[in-house]
């Protein structure tokens, strides 16, 4: 088990290099970032030359990449074009997005799994069909529509919540954005759990457990659910990465100054240091989340072992 974890951690190293190199190249293809810094006027050529020299943009791309990597290992993620350290941006953005993701995941787990169990146990009944239809609607409506609609209704028309989140982004402010962010995944979790539960409900071990005279609650929670959760855990695990990086739309709608917003700003302003830095961290988060998912399999199903 220990060796397995170490092997997986080692595998992250080539993935890390590959990902950073790819992103670095992609950001560089976008063109000359200094030109966008002076608004609708042309940058003074002498100033532009100095800026390029400062940011190392006058060197060939491979050299820029090596310098960047070198700095990275000393903990220096570079500076955005407004002079702010990228690490400084990260230290404000990641906690916010982390809280948002946490809210979203909790929604997914609590609501998604409960609904899944509920519908899975009542397969074919009206309640099952009803929720099936509901999830279909949620999946097919794009997030920005749900987001803007809920913002307008709850925030402006009815005044239940503040339409825009303050820079502090406390948990209670993040409830609505978290729900919007989670909505699509939540529907998927419901469907996955439902199918899995419905299938396992007819398995031999469940019938045995029922025949033994175990209380229904225990049959469902210990025997049925534990075995049905494997595909759901996989989905939620990979979703952590997707939620953290994919919150661009939700964060912009609800004025959340998190990772998605910083990435958007970085891309629009062609600040390669910001984009590469943030994406690198996101890649790491994704890898670690996947590792944890794989390890959780063994917890859920003792038959799975890693050596």
């Amino acid at each position: 088990m220990g060796r397995y974890v170490i092997r997986r951690l080692l595998q992250m190293i080539p993935v890390f290099f590959g990902a950073t190199l790819l992103i670095f190249l992609m950001v560089n293809v976008m063109g000359d970032p200094v030109a966008g810094l002076c608004g609708d006027r042309k940058c003074d050529p002498a100033v532009a030359a100095q800026l390029k020299k400062d940011f190392g943009l006058d060197q060939p791309v491979w050299q820029q990449y090596l310098t960047y990597l070198g700095n990275l290992f000393t903990g220096d993620f570079g500076r955005a074009f407004n002079g702010q350290k990228v690490t400084e941006l990260m230290s404000t953005a990641f906690p916010v997005t982390f809280r948002l993701t946490l809210v979203a995941i909790v929604f997914e787990i609590v609501i998604g799994i409960s609904l899944g169990v509920l519908t899975g146990l009542r397969r074919g009944r009206p309640i099952d069909t009803g929720f099936l239809l509901l999830t279909l609607i949620v999946i097919s409506v794009p997030t920005f529509v749900t987001g803007l609609l809920l913002q307008l209704l709850l925030g402006v028309k009815w005044g239940w919540v503040k339409p825009a989140v303050s820079p502090a982004a406390t948990f209670d402010e993040l409830l609505l954005p978290g729900l919007v962010l989670a909505s699509v995944s939540l529907a998927y979790v419901t469907r996955l759990t439902r199918t899995s539960v419905a299938e396992n409900a007819r398995a031999d071990y469940v019938r045995t457990a029922v025949a033994k005279g175990l209380p229904r609650r225990r049959v469902i929670s210990r025997h049925l659910l534990r075995n049905s959760l494997i595909p759901v855990v996989t989905f939620i695990g990979t979703d952590v990465g997707a939620l953290m990086g994919g919150a661009i739309v939700t964060e912009r709608i609800f004025n959340i100054h998190g990772v998605g917003y910083q990435l958007y700003q970085g891309i629009v302003r062609q600040s390669s240091q910001t984009v590469v830095g943030f994406v690198t961290i996101l890649v790491l988060v994704y890898l670690v989340a996947n590792l944890i998912v794989d390890l959780l399999y063994a917890v859920l199903d003792p038959r799975i072992r890693y050596a």
Binding site: V5, S91, P167, V285, V288, V299
Partner: peptide, 29 residues
């Protein structure tokens, strides 16, 4: 066995959290 596996998962999670942990947020008001 289950508990032992859980321990490893928790350890990996702790490492991951430590790696991505960052300072507090800004102030509002």
């Amino acid at each position: 066995r289950g508990a032992r596996h859980a321990k490893w998962a928790a350890a990996a999670a702790a490492v991951a959290l430590a790696a991505t942990a960052c300072g507090g947020g800004g102030s509002g008001g």
